[in-house]
Amino acid sequence: MSDDSLGFIFLNACIINNFVLSSFLGICPFLGVSGKYETASRMGFAVMFVMLVSSVCAYFINTLLVQLDMEYLRLICYIAVIASSVQLVEMVMKKYSPALFRSLGIFLPLITTNCAILGLALFQTAKGYNFLECVVYALGAGSGFTLALVIMSGLREQLSLHDVPSIAKGAGLTLMVAGILSLAFMGFAGLGS
């Protein structure tokens, strides 16, 4: 598989350079929403959708900015685009799925400041992807995020039943599990070269 094929771009964003476990982006929802499997998977899909929307928007805005010779506005434009696309998702969700809206609570507005999404927009610009590659990259990054969240929530549901020493209860154990998962994902690092 060559390094610029669509399949590799997807694998790279999803597993090899997983946004959460290898690049350490989007740790806040990763630790905050991973307590229950249901909310974790929904949050994952919400992030995937926002990623897709903001990736497409960022691609067109970047093209526009390059033509106008105004690349220095890139960062602030991306932030505005991401914030507005999250607002869009929030409004749609509030209307069509109030239960999901309530269960996600504060974390949905927090996607606005989720560094994984800004990171995605900046990475795809830095890598110079074309439109199709951008979409595949966003899908890969979104599924990688969902994957990490789902694994983590499954482990945490299991751990909540365990007789864990009081010294490690709560955030300590969660961070330990996140660290070990990250070590495990390090094993994929050799796939790329």
Binding site: L159, H162, D163, P165
Partner: peptide, 14 residues
């Protein structure tokens, strides 16, 4: 880190 912190035998998830 792999076993005792998770509560000993039977509780280790890794």
């Amino acid at each position: 880190l792999g076993k005792a912190l998770f509560g000993g035998i039977g509780f280790n998830v890794f």
